[in-house]
C-alpha cells in the first residue's frame, strides 16, 4: 500500500510550483528598511507531499502562504497551482487555506457561521448541516457550536478556521500556523486530519513553529530567513547538519538515564536539556480526554 502511494507520488504532477517568487509591501505601508518580504523563492511541491515551512517571526512564512492562497499578489516571479497560473474559483475549490486572519461576524454562533460559509461556497443546502456537524465534531467544537465564535479561545478559533478550510475536502491544504494556541488535544486532532489527508493522497503546506508536533508527517521542510530559502530537504537532512539530536526514551528511571548519558558526555557532547519529556503532558491530557 505504502509502496503504491510512493509510486504515485513519484509520478505526481506538482500541486504548487513557485518560480523566483518575490513580494514586497508597498513603501507607504511598510516604512522599515526591509522592503522585501519574499525574495527569489523557487520550489516545487508534488501532489501527495507535505511541506513544512519554518522560520523566525517576520521571515516571510505568512506572506508566502498568503501569496499561495491568493490573498496577496506577488510582485515578482510566478506561481502555478495544479499547472495553472491563474487562481480561478475552480482551483480555489481544491485549496483549503487557513490564513492568519480573524474570522468575521464574531457575534455569530460557531455552528451558524460554519453553515453560512458552507452555503456561500456552494455546498448544497441539504448537505450543509450534516457536513458542518461532522467537522465541528471532528474538531471538538460541537458542544460550543451555539456560542459566539468571537468569544472562543485562540485555539478554538483556529479549529473553527480549519473547519472552514476543510469544508470542500480540498486536495491542497495551506495552513498558516495551524497549531498556534492549540492544546495537545487540538494538536492531536490536526495531526490525525493531516495523516488522513496524506493517506488520501492530499498535499499540504504547513507553516509552524512547533516542528516537533508534526515533523513525522512532513516529507520536506523549508526554512525561511528574511524572505529567502536557507534550508530545504527532509528534517533529517536540514537539521542533522546542526549536529544536535533529540532522543525520547520511555520506561526508564532517572538514574539509569544518567548512566546512559555519561559515555556521551565523556566523548565531549554538550547536554542542552535533560528532564521528563514535555510531550508527556500532551499524552497525559489526551489520555484524560479519551477517558472522558
Amino acid at each position: 500500500m505504502n509502496q503504491e502511494i510512493e509510486n504515485n507520488r513519484r509520478q505526481a504532477s506538482p500541486a504548487i510550483k513557485v518560480s523566483h517568487l518575490g513580494f514586497h509591501y508597498p513603501r507607504w505601508f511598510h516604512r522599515k528598511k526591509q522592503d522585501f518580504a519574499l525574495q527569489d523563492l523557487s520550489f516545487c511541491l508534488e501532489e501527495g507531499r507535505c511541506l513544512g515551512i519554518l522560520g523566525a517571526n517576520g521571515s516571510g512564512k505568512s506572506t508566502l502562504l498568503s501569496c499561495l492562497g491568493g490573498s496577496l499578489i506577488p510582485t515578482g516571479g510566478e506561481i502555478q497551482w495544479f499547472g495553472q497560473q491563474h487562481l480561478s474559483v475552480e482551483i480555489q475549490r481544491k485549496i483549503g487555506f487557513l490564513p492568519d486572519a480573524e474570522l468575521p461576524f464574531p457575534a455569530l454562533p460557531a455552528g451558524i457561521f460554519l453553515e453560512m460559509t458552507a452555503r456561500a461556497i456552494g455546498i448544497p443546502k441539504k448537505e450543509v448541516k450534516q457536513h458542518c456537524e461532522d467537522l465541528l465534531t471532528e474538531f471538538g467544537l460541537m458542544s460550543a457550536q451555539k456560542r459566539p465564535h468571537g468569544k472562543f479561545s485562540k485555539g478554538m478559533k483556529r479549529r473553527l478556521g480549519l473547519s472552514v478550510a476543510l469544508l470542500l475536502n480540498p486536495t491542497l491544504l495551506l495552513l498558516d500556523e495551524p497549531l498556534s494556541g492549540m492544546d495537545p488535544i487540538g494538536v492531536e486532532t490536526i495531526r490525525r486530519r493531516l495523516v488522513r489527508h496524506k493517506e488520501r493522497g492530499g498535499t499540504a503546506l504547513v507553516s509552524t513553529h512547533q516542528l516537533e508536533e508534526i515533523e513525522d508527517l512532513l516529507d520536506r521542510i523549508m526554512i525561511l530567513d528574511q524572505g529567502r530559502i536557507v534550508g530545504y530537504g527532509t528534517v533529517h537532512e536540514v537539521l542533522g547538519k546542526e549536529g544536535t539530536w533529540n532522543i525520547e526514551i520511555a520506561d526508564i528511571d532517572e538514574e539509569s538515564i544518567q548512566n546512559l548519558l555519561q559515555p556521551l558526555l565523556e566523548k565531549g557532547a554538550t547536554l542542552h536539556t535533560f528532564g521528563p519529556s514535555r510531550q508527556a503532558l500532551g499524552r497525559f491530557l489526551l489520555h484524560l480526554h479519551k477517558e472522558q
Binding site: 491568493g70 490573498s71 474559483v89 490564513p99 492568519d100 486572519a101 480573524e102 468575521p104 456561500a120 461556497i121
Partner: peptide, 25 residues
C-alpha cells in the same frame, strides 16, 4: 462590522480564501 472589504481589514485574507467569485461576493 464587515472587516473584509478592503486593505488592512483583519478578515480580508479569510474572505479572499473563499472559493467564491469576488465580484459576486
Amino acid at each position: 462590522q464587515l472587516p473584509f472589504l478592503g486593505p488592512g481589514d483583519p478578515s480580508l485574507a479569510w474572505t479572499l480564501s473563499l472559493p467564491v467569485p469576488r465580484g459576486l461576493h
